[in-house]
Design a protein around this nucleic acid. Sequence first.
DNA 1: GTCTATAAGGTGATAGAC
DNA 2: GTCTATCACCTTATAGAC
Lengths: 210, 210
Amino acid sequence: MNDHVSHMLNTDSIEQKWSDGEREIVRATYRVMVEHGYSNLSISKIAGELGKTKAAVYYHYDSKEELLVSFLDFVVDWFKNDIAEEISESPETALNNVVESLIPLELDDETFHGQVVLLELRSQTRRSEEFRERFTEINDLLVGIVRDIIERGVEAGAFRDVEAPRVAEHIVATANGARIDRVTTDRPAAPAAVRVSLSSYIDSELRQHD
Amino acid sequence: MNDHVSHMLNTDSIEQKWSDGEREIVRATYRVMVEHGYSNLSISKIAGELGKTKAAVYYHYDSKEELLVSFLDFVVDWFKNDIAEEISESPETALNNVVESLIPLELDDETFHGQVVLLELRSQTRRSEEFRERFTEINDLLVGIVRDIIERGVEAGAFRDVEAPRVAEHIVATANGARIDRVTTDRPAAPAAVRVSLSSYIDSELRQHD
DNA sequence: GTCTATAAGGTGATAGAC
DNA sequence: GTCTATCACCTTATAGAC
């Protein structure tokens, strides 16, 4: 979660902008989650992180649930901006960049804890339809980016004429599996192994060999 | 979570067997989790499910944490029995069976909720080293099974001479990613797409073509 | 082994003053 | 917008009787 919540992809970025108060609360929420985990998140802790009281939080949000959905909206937006950076390159390097950023070789502590928090939230999908919608959107976005890169490569003649949607689902599923493995187990060699195997899969499946 | 906790793989199965009381509590814990989710699990609910009181639970376990770790030990044992069934077949069909059981085409409600519960627990890895150890063991087991199948196939000449550990990591990561996608999003077509792509990957990467 | 009763504390949320 | 004060509720966990 970084700081460039500056420009949006869509034009509807102006209407649904959040108020300063909401933005501060969501940022504080994220910091509390990184430190204590989602399951130990409370309105009191958020208020403490803000330097205000619980009632101040409840002025902006009617319930904890509403706050959490708002938090997920921030995540989706951040996601849109973050992965949009990759797609300007050529298909080959774009796909490479995506794989590298989805399965990084190392993770600093804060990113690590951020990933765990997102997994905790993802596991709360039974809580509400709104939760489910947000994570559906995130996965759709990710698969869409990869699919577009592949289709672009096929059109340009750089990739073989594969079924882009299927291969995209495969790549994203593999990356997600590797990412979750990393943050929930002590298997330090696993992510790199997956990345190597995934790269070689991409190479043999997509690259034009004469 | 089914009923055949009958025979164990290892010989140390006799010593660390659980008492009847513990077994009943863990089973009740599982039922409560399937119904209410891990994050709404409480000792009161477990006791209610048992038809006893909280104090009866605390007679068997000193803390909720200890109960949860014990629950995970049951999961690991169940896992050992469950996946051990696949490995008796020939390498080709064994690998096929593993993929099919890791990415099933349909899930009944209870299995679905059980998967979500396991994901919730997995996301609690920051809670303790003991949690982390259990999920490390589960992933190691899974990768080990797949690796063994591949190595067996390579020795028998059925598979090409690939790096079994790497390919095994790839397959398991993909399957895990697909499984988590399924239970946390509304993307009904995704699991089948991953399964098809994964199968074709296995076919082109492993199968001996002359 | 299981019970009742209780302690001590955190939780989400609200009312009303400023 | 933010505060204090409070509510009703649920939680983990223990003491002591049976």
